[in-house]
Amino acid sequence: MSNNRIDRVFSRLKATGRTGLLPYITGGYPNLDATVALLRSLSSCGASVIEVGFPFSDSIADGPVIQDSFHRALSNGLKVEHLFEAVATARRDVDVALVAMVSCSIIDRIGLKEFVDRSATAGFDGLIVPDVPLEEAQRFVEETERVHLKNIMLVASSTPPDRSAGIAAMSSGFLYQIAVAGTTGERASIANNLPGHIAQLRSHCNLPICVGFGIGNPEQVAEVAQFADGVIVGSAIVRRITQAVDKGSPMEKWIESVTGYVTQMVAAT
């Protein structure tokens, strides 16, 4: 069996017939101490994989909630180096699978080789680079493999079947199905055609399929869990953090409340 935590968690889920819950948090938001505390807290509430977003000044794929968290973290002087240090600190006593979600702009500036080395050293298990298309993916596959990180790629509902087969072939760990045509952020309902897309995807993809974008409450998690191997929730969590921070809520208190919300969603899977 693979040593990678992502493989292990999806094997366990499959063996028990469960669907995973994958919370997303913005790294360094509202500060680095909160990131360490959140990773510790979320890892003990049943989250299967935690996605850590690297704040970027010009993220195209993100809606207003995550953009705002990026902007605030960067305004506080957050650097990539600090975020790696915070993750490494949390990793000492956290065994949950961790995935870095990061723009190609950041990786290209730092250098792909150096970035994956630092990711592996910090304790990440995989990498999601949402703005790297299939045509550019080969070097990401090679570099992540070198340090035993998973290269997790995204497919959209508009992706034609032959292309999604190509993306699946370049992916490892799991495949990320984008649930909506649009940016990240909570939506009122789940697209009707989503189960059909996933069924089609399974005909040429043996990886676990996780669904994200637009899913924000336990009811939606339960709905998506019927046909997905994992459900990714991001903006709904980040929005709760922002609301708590803006109200001046103490960190311990809002981390407890956010963790409680994630626990509800874990229960809904």
């Binding site: 195209i60 794929a61 703005d131 298309p133 995204l154 959209a156 508009s158 992706t159 292309r163 984008i178």
Partner: peptide, 12 residues
């Protein structure tokens, strides 16, 4: 050059 865009835009 190239196309460094989210997969959602690839079809467009």
């Amino acid at each position: 050059g190239g196309q460094f865009i989210p997969e959602t835009l690839t079809a467009a």
